[in-house]
Design a protein around this nucleic acid. Structure first.
Length: 815
DNA sequence: AGCACGCCGACT
DNA sequence: GTCGGCGTGCTC
């Protein structure tokens, strides 16, 4: 009787793959274990066992698995079910979900290793120069990777050389798959057993009387052991000034012996319970959440900025972990985890674990395994969207903070999932509750509240008498007419900044565009430098004196004269954070201003450094992009300035107004503190615009009503569901035709509206032309059947020879 | 997706 | 004459 498994491979292929296993393996293997399997000509992948069966494939011979990587499953049945849902809903393969769900430390890929054959002699084998170089390198290193061979020969195509060496019997190839995860081990020492008795010990000290250093080391060891009553780590001795050589010779003399204990890489120290109690309003909100959970699985907490939502989350989480449940806390931005970990571990001690993509491989594997075991140390998980894929087995609650943030939706590699929506599905599988929190809920969530699908709780009062900020509108048209502008600052704005600083408070300025200016223009011929690979103008960076493309990274030195007409009269157009920072240096030369955007927050701690120095008041004025709007708390900010509200309002996106509202309210929320009313200054050409008015009046309901009305009229979410199909190819005509073909077929096959084919605002990126189509699914129309039909149409597109090279991406619920 | 295979233009 | 460009087909 043959035995088989179905394995999921981390690839964008629609099917699972069948592999043959032995009877013993069949008995041992379970769903959710990893297996190393050969795939294609000479590659080994980490497959995941999806099922076991005994039906031989009919059209091909199943390969045998290479070996088994786990002793017990590392992926739970619920996860597999959830992955399946993600793959179906977001229209990608389960392999893609698997690939992004598993930490890369658990997802190994093979590497081809070249080793020399022992009995080969170079003499008389007539190797050419390249072959000899490889042979020689192998005498020194005894194993090479393909990449290394390529470096040695200084060219890309090395396979012919390798093949010739194989045929000459000089080398052989192996596929190596190495476990990347290594538990961190701490080195300890202890006295060999025979010295544990008193007399031997005195003897020992006698023996060492002439080796002063070694004697000292042994004495010190005793001290440590007596005081700590714990195993003695080698590091403790070296810290005390005992050298590694001394320890080594003691080990060599068999006086000490060394041993290792695995240690957790991540440890949060925390005094358990820095007890606090909720304010009256917070308690009310807390109560309405718990009541709401009796009827609804999902509840939205609509709490204005600085109303103390986090305290409510903490109280809620406490209840769940007391009953032994796991809690997942999702944040929109990795950079926010640091602040939150401090707050939560002060309360829950080392029950808090973190998980996000900036964590090292090993750290992520560790958290994964802890969650899988249901370890005490990972009862509360804080993470960005990928933490959703951890192997929970007893999940009780998911908190999604800043629920409206668009970064919860994964944009680029598939699966293009929305963490909020996927979390709600996951919670259902676990019978867990979901709490969404935001000061400016997404229209989707608030809509679900109104229709009774979600529960609702609100917190409409700032914590501890913080008065909501005063919002002042500045009419730019008027200011320019009256010549009251200095650069991009109106006199009102400059005065307010000066006043705030004079009071010893800090200022935040918001400009949603990085760089110095979005483009430069020749004042003689009107030429605007463009990216040669993308259909965008190049952003000017004054500091680096460069022009840069935000889409492909292309950059050139900033021209001194126009490339077209050689005029030297070049002017910058528009403005970004860098320019504002420059202007500040002139306006407030003795104040310390700093800039926070993607360009200054590179690196693992770039962001935290800026935040910390702002908190420590080393920075007086912080200029930043939308990064500033994401749930940061500062307690000395006297005013917030929005330099140009208009560029947010006029984006070609049906969500532009909602976003502009959210962004402005969020940024405004950074102003003010206890007993001190903050000020928010908004510069705009449209002071009468509805969204601006809604921001000043803090009228979420008004914004919601107006936007929802528009969405209804123009057939957009939350009424209609959207699926965007994007086509890319370097041949302009080819994409254009393929998009038209696709449009026609979709229209004839689907009974729903299809928009397009549309040339997006940026119609070419990295030399690929882009077209997009939008399928709109009306309320009440089945999602699954429509998606199935779309996939079928795309398959038939793939069957058209001239179009199959066109790259296609599908984005369900684009955000 | 990756990767091998296969066919065609630009140079050591 | 090879190197490396890309189009094509396949992966249990």
């Amino acid at each position: 009787m043959p035995y088989f498994i179905e394995a999921i491979l981390p690839l964008a292929l629609p099917n699972t793959f069948t592999y043959a296993v032995t009877e013993a393996e069949y008995g041992f293997l379970q769903q959710g274990m990893r297996v190393a399997v050969p795939f294609g000509k000479n590659k080994i992948y980490t497959g995941l066992v999806a099922s076991l069966h005994q039906t031989p494939p009919r059209l091909y011979e199943a390969k045998e698995i290479h070996h088994i990587l786990d002793e017990k499953p590392i992926v739970t049945p619920i996860q597999l079910q959830h992955w399946k849902w993600v793959a179906d809903y977001y229209m990608c393969t389960i392999g893609e979900v698997y690939k992004s769900a598993l930490p890369s430390g658990l997802l190994l890929e093979s590497e081809t290793i070249i080793t020399p054959k022992k009995d080969f002699v170079a003499e008389g084998a007539d190797l050419n120069d390249e072959e000899y170089l490889v042979y020689e390198a192998l005498q020194v290193q005894s194993a090479l990777k393909i990449q290394e061979v390529s470096n040695i020969l200084n060219k890309k195509t090395v396979l012919p050389v390798i093949n010739r060496l194989i045929s000459k019997n000089a080398i052989s190839l192996q596929e190596e798959i190495s476990e990347k995860y290594k538990p961190k081990a701490i080195r300890y020492i202890r006295l060999q057993e025979q010295f544990l008795q008193q007399e031997q010990l005195s003897q020992l000290l006698e023996v060492l009387s002439r080796a002063k250093k070694q004697r000292e080391a042994v004495m010190h060891y005793f001290q440590l052991q007596a005081s700590d009553k714990k195993p003695v780590a080698v590091k403790k001795l070296t810290d005390a000034g005992i050298t590694a050589t001394v320890i080594k010779s003691l080990i060599d003399k068999e006086i000490f012996e060394e041993y290792y204990i695995e240690e957790d890489r991540i440890q949060f120290e925390g005094s358990n319970n820095a007890g606090f109690s909720l304010s009256e309003k917070q308690q009310l909100a807390f109560n309405s959440i718990t009541t709401s959970f009796e009827q609804h699985n999902v509840t939205l907490l609509h709490g204005i900025t600085s109303s103390g939502k986090t305290e409510i989350y903490i109280k809620l989480i406490e209840g769940y972990i007391q009953s032994g449940k796991q809690v997942l806390y999702l944040l929109p931005e990795i950079a926010l985890t640091a602040q939150l970990v401090i707050r939560l571990s002060a309360y829950f001690g080392n029950k808090v674990a973190v998980y996000h993509s900036k964590y090292s491989n090993n750290e992520r594997v560790e958290s994964w395994l802890q969650v899988l075991e249901g370890s005490e140390k990972a009862q509360v998980i804080i993470g960005a969207r990928s933490a959703l894929f951890l192997p929970f087995n007893n999940l009780g609650l998911i908190v999604i903070d800043e629920e409206h943030e668009q970064s919860f939706k994964q944009q680029d590699p598939a699966p293009r999932y929305h963490a909020r929506d996927a979390a709600i599905v996951l919670a259902n599988y676990h019978n867990a509750k979901v709490l969404l929190g935001s000061a400016t809920p997404s229209l989707e969530s608030y809509f679900n509240v109104q229709s009774g699908k979600y529960g609702y709780a609100e917190l409409k009062e700032r914590y501890g008498n913080v008065i909501p900020p005063e919002i002042i509108l500045i009419d730019l048209k008027d200011k320019y007419k009256r010549k009251q502008m200095t650069g991009h600052f109106s006199d009102t704005m400059t005065d307010a900044v000066a006043e705030t600083l004079a009071l010893g408070k800090q200022v935040i300025l918001f400009q949603n565009r990085r760089g110095f200016s979005p483009y430069i223009e020749c004042m003689t011929c009107g030429h605007v430098p463009q990216c040669p690979q993308c259909d965008v103008s190049l952003t000017y960076y004054k500091y680096k004196n460069a022009l840069r493309c935000h889409y492909c990274g292309y950059h050139i030195a900033s021209p001194t004269q126009c490339h077209k007409c050689h005029s030297t009269d070049i002017s910058t157009k528009g403005f970004g954070t860098e320019q504002i920072e420059q202007e500040l240096k002139v306006l407030f030369p003795e104040k310390n201003s700093w800039r926070m955007d993607q360009d200054t927050t590179r690196g693992r701690h770039g962001y935290e450094k800026i935040i910390d120095s702002f908190k420590n008041r080393e920075i007086d004025i912080l200029v930043g992009t939308q990064m500033l709007a994401k749930g940061l708390h500062f307690d000395n900010v006297g005013m917030v300035g929005i330099l140009n509200a208009d560029n947010m309002l006029y984006q070609p996106d049906f969500r532009a107004f909602e976003r502009a509202y959210q962004m402005m309210v969020q940024v405004a929320g950074r102003a003010g503190r206890k007993n001190d009313r903050g000020r928010v200054l908004v510069q705009t050409y449209n002071p009468l615009h509805n969204v601006i008015r809604q921001v000043t009046e803090n009228d979420y309901e008004g914004m919601f009503a107006e936007q929802v009305y528009e969405r209804h009229n123009y057939k957009y979410p939350p009424y209609y569901r959207l699926i965007r199909i994007t086509l890319r190819h370097k041949d302009y005509e080819k994409v254009k035709n393929a998009a038209l073909w696709l449009y026609n077929v979709l229209c004839s096959q689907l009974q729903v509206p299809v928009l397009g084919p549309e040339e997006p605002a940026i119609s070419r990126i990295r030399n690929e032309y882009i077209r997009s189509l939008m399928v709109k699914i009306p309320p009440g129309t089945g999602l699954q059947p429509t998606k199935k039909a779309i996939l079928k149409v795309l398959q038939s597109l793939d069957a058209v020879a001239q179009y199959k090279a066109v790259k296609i991406t599908i984005n369900a619920d684009p955000y």
